[in-house]
């Protein structure tokens, strides 16, 4: 998942660093505030630990071996902000000394693996584990689920970064200057291999390691918030606020392509657009395109009309609906898990 140099356009690389800078700043401030003075060098060893975890061979069916990233495990054991620094450090050393991942792409790589993955995984773990005590199976399940979702979220953002390149950086003739594979190809290829294979490896390593620590050394486990003390480090309202902000920004996906005159993303044409571009509609495309009639095609109601304000409203509603469905299903899983436990 480490993106090498040369695949991402300079704009994307710069954006990666620009996005990471506030995360690094906030992470170092949070870490100094919450960790005691005597624990700050523990971060460096946590970074070394992350590095070595990425080297463990995990045999997968078929005879080959895979690797787990371990960012979610580090987020659970050390806290998500500490994980940002620890995983970033591991990525920096991998890129500088071992050529694993590009230098210009380092900001983007850090965003995917040191921000998206730990936070999504840690958030999932907190949602699923809830107020259960530190030794309960819910923690293990939450960790495993967090590993799966965290890795796939990171894979998704990586794939999106790849897939946007032909759209963002092309020469006068429209030919891509950097990674030439569009969103469909990138998301399918990268997404599938992580959804079907590496996600499970990550889930297994994260969950099983937490289970091992529960038996072998519970003093190392993070303290759950179920001890009565109010949890200071997971303000749910901030997550909700951030999500709401992103939902409201969804219409950018309409405005920007309209302003830049980009049209549909390269490779993401509907059957009608292909017919217009190529002069004919491939038979198979027409038939397959009619298999699943989406309730909200193109994120808007068919009755919305083509006006930008109406479409924007439908974009926001679609985003909100998608978020509600996702959060709701995770919350449902948590409630279902909480059922058999007696108080």
């Amino acid at each position: 998942m480490h993106i090498p140099d040369g695949y991402l356009s300079p704009q994307t690389c710069a954006a990666g660093y620009a996005v990471m800078a506030p995360f690094w700043a906030v992470a170092s401030r949070r870490v100094k505030a919450t960790l005691r003075l005597r624990q700050v060098p523990l971060l460096a060893l946590g970074a070394a630990f992350t590095f070595v975890v990425m080297m463990f061979n995990v045999p997968i069916p078929g005879g080959t071996t895979g690797h787990a990233v371990g960012a979610v495990l580090v987020a659970i054991l050390l806290g998500p902000w500490a994980a940002v620094i620890a995983v970033s450090s591991a990525l920096v050393v991998q890129a500088l000394l071992f050529g694993d991942g590009g230098i210009t792409a380092l900001g983007a790589n850090c965003f995917n693996i040191a921000v998206v993955m730990p936070f999504v995984g840690w958030g999932t773990w907190r949602l699923v584990a809830g107020k259960a005590p530190a030794g309960s199976p819910r923690h293990v399940l939450g960790a495993a689920l967090g590993g799966y979702l965290g890795l796939n979220a990171a894979a998704l953002t990586t794939a999106v970064m790849f897939g946007l390149q032909p759209l963002i950086a092309h020469d006068a003739a429209g030919r891509p200057l950097y990674s030439p594979f569009g969103l469909k190809v990138a998301v399918t290829a990268i997404g599938l291999e992580h959804l079907l294979l590496f996600g499970f490896v990550e889930a297994a390593v994260t969950g099983l390691t937490l289970a091992w620590l529960q038996r072998a050394d519970p003093s190392l486990l993070p303290v759950s918030s179920g001890d009565g003390a109010p949890s200071k480090s997971f303000p749910l309202w901030r997550l909700g606020g951030g999500l709401a902000g992103l939902v409201l920004l969804a219409p950018l996906g309409l405005y920007l392509p309209a302003r830049l005159g980009a049209g549909s993303a390269w490779g993401e044409w509907s059957a009608r657009e292909v017919a217009r571009l190529a002069g004919f509609m491939p038979e198979g495309l027409r038939r397959l395109g009619e298999i699943w009639p989406a309730p909200l095609p193109d994120y808007a109601s068919p009755a919305a009309g083509a006006g930008l304000p109406a479409l924007s409203l439908w974009y926001v509603l679609s985003a909100a609906l998608g978020c509600l469905l996702l959060v709701g299903s995770l919350w449902g899983v948590r409630r279902w898990l909480a059922r058999p436990e007696s108080p």
Partner: peptide, 23 residues
């Protein structure tokens, strides 16, 4: 997988105790 879990877990224990000593 059990070995990997145990290996990573005991590596974390070592990391934690070494980290404390270095601190």
């Amino acid at each position: 997988l059990a070995f990997v879990a145990a290996g990573v877990g005991s590596l974390f224990r070592r990391t934690h105790s070494l980290g404390r000593s270095v601190c």
